[in-house]
Amino acid sequence: MSETIVKVNHMTKKFGDLLVLDDVSFDVKKGEFLCIVGPTGCGKTTFLNCITKLYEPTAGEILINDKPVNLKEDNIAYIFQEYSTMSWLTVEQNVAFGLEIKKKPKDFIKQEVDEVLEMVGLTKYRDYYPSELSTSMLQRVVIARAFAVKPQLLLMDEPYGQLDVELRFRLEDELLNLWRKTGTTVIFITHNIEEAVYLSQNILVLTNKPTTIKAKLENDLPFPRNVTSPEFIDIRSKVTDLIKWW
């Protein structure tokens, strides 16, 4: 379990003279659930875009399994806030999409899709179109699509930011379940401190721009966690104090 899968070395990003990311280094272990939190307006989007290679970092490198990130070879899945399903495809086709792009054999796709649909409880809805589903169902389709490709790394950018709290809690629990079952490595970016403490094994706290790492906190509370327990509140306050600007 201690094998390092992602290694970020001295990642720096400048836009012209504007320094946005300043010498960021961290490791993610295989199977780890890492949450990244920072103050509003910190360079978290730039941060993410560097990892996903939308931007080329000005300096530094990102290694996956000791090799520079290669989006063609490395199996990385993303879930963003503006989660999108393809409206002209059924639930099943949506979930199979990533596997089909990777040109996997038909029966393999069928098997994988069946399995992941079962895990998120969408088997009954496999032939529905996205427009026929509720928000929570859509979220599950997006999650299923990400997990279907059995990613080495799953990047999530504030996926539950706009949801009802109740629904968020439920989806967070489902995410934790999937994570435990599949052993996927997850990097989860959020503004919500409680969410970060609820989900993560490790918390990376970012500073305001130019973004650096302020602290890395270990969070070894046992699952399932109780947001009202003193230990939980203790970690939550610690993170809040590191971030608080309001």
Partner: peptide, 14 residues
């Protein structure tokens, strides 16, 4: 405050 991020939301509530 439904469309604001969690931290800005705290500020606005206060």
């Amino acid at each position: 405050f439904g469309h604001l991020d969690a931290q800005t939301r705290y500020l606005m509530q206060e």
